[in-house]
Write a protein that binds this DNA or RNA. Structure first.
Length: 258
DNA sequence: TAGGTGTTTCCTGATT
DNA sequence: CAATCAGGAAACACCT
């Protein structure tokens, strides 16, 4: 069986998606997929090992993949580690099920930001979960005494985690998910890592949403981007407005990494 | 508790 | 003219 990287876009769960109509469907997907089918901590980065395991089980069930075909021991990690895996890592760890798992976790990583932004920007009152709502953690009740779960819960209570994803990773992930990108940022030269902001204000708002900072602007976001030049995470692209280029210290953006 | 990191905020000036 | 770009400086919120 051979599965292309984004095969799950055609799966029953996401069949209502289409690249040209992604805004409303993100909301549809969020309310159904994440809130009903995935009643867990919405931030996979915060999952415990147990929650990673639960996610693995559910993805296998829903996609009707024989669970015995995937070595679960390869996923003996917490959510933070899971979110750091590349597409290739998933192939190594789960073989033909890798793409499905990769896409699932990628969707989950993005669901919070996009559902919140799109529900406010694109539609009137949508009662998708917002950062102000209490965390959903029914899974915790399964093993309330588990140290991992306790740790996970205590982290949820701690407001949120501004020290989560870095800005350049956030930008990179938008670029790598064109289905949800909706024309926010576009590759100018995919092989060289050159990209351009198409909707600078929207990206800034999204970043602000991520950091729970409604006063974020492109002006401020771009200052942070400029600090990356010295660290060689970005390279300067002269004379071209809104254009940046990944530098030697930026990881995970190359096609060969996927 | 101090020092470090990664921004965030503000600002002045130059460029497009 | 408005939007960006360039960085310096300082404030901030974690983290070690």
């Amino acid at each position: 069986m051979s599965i292309s990287p984004f095969t799950t876009l055609e799966s029953p769960l996401t069949s209502s998606w289409s690249p040209t109509n992604s805004y409303p469907d993100v909301a549809t997907w969020m309310s159904g997929y994440s809130n009903r089918l995935w009643p867990r901590d919405p931030q996979p980065q915060l999952w415990s090992k147990f929650q990673v395991w639960e996610w693995l089980q559910q993805v296998m069930d829903i996609n009707q993949i024989d669970a015995s075909s995937v070595p679960f021991q390869n996923f003996d990690m917490d959510g933070h580690q899971l979110c750091g895996l590349s597409y290739q890592d998933f192939i190594h760890a789960a073989d033909s099920a890798g793409p499905v798992l990769f896409h699932s976790i990628t969707e989950l990583k993005w669901s919070v930001d996009f559902s919140c932004s799109f529900s406010e920007v694109s539609y009137p009152p949508a009662d998708l979960y917002s950062p102000s709502l209490p965390p959903i953690a029914p899974i915790a009740s399964l093993t309330p005494s588990s140290p991992d779960i306790k740790r996970s819960l205590s982290r949820q209570v701690k407001k949120h985690n501004p020290r989560g994803i870095h800005l350049w990773e956030f930008i990179r992930d938008i670029l790598l998910n064109p289905e949800w990108n909706s024309g926010l940022i576009k590759w100018e030269d995919r092989a060289e890592g050159v990209f351009r902001f198409l909707k600078s204000d929207a990206v800034a708002q999204l970043w602000g949403k991520k950091k729970n900072n409604i006063s974020m602007t492109y002006e401020k976001l771009s200052r942070a981007m400029r600090y990356y030049y010295k660290r060689e995470i970005l390279e300067r692209v002269d004379g071209r407005r809104l254009v940046y280029k990944f530098g030697r210290n930026a990881r995970g953006w190359r096609e060969s990494d996927m």
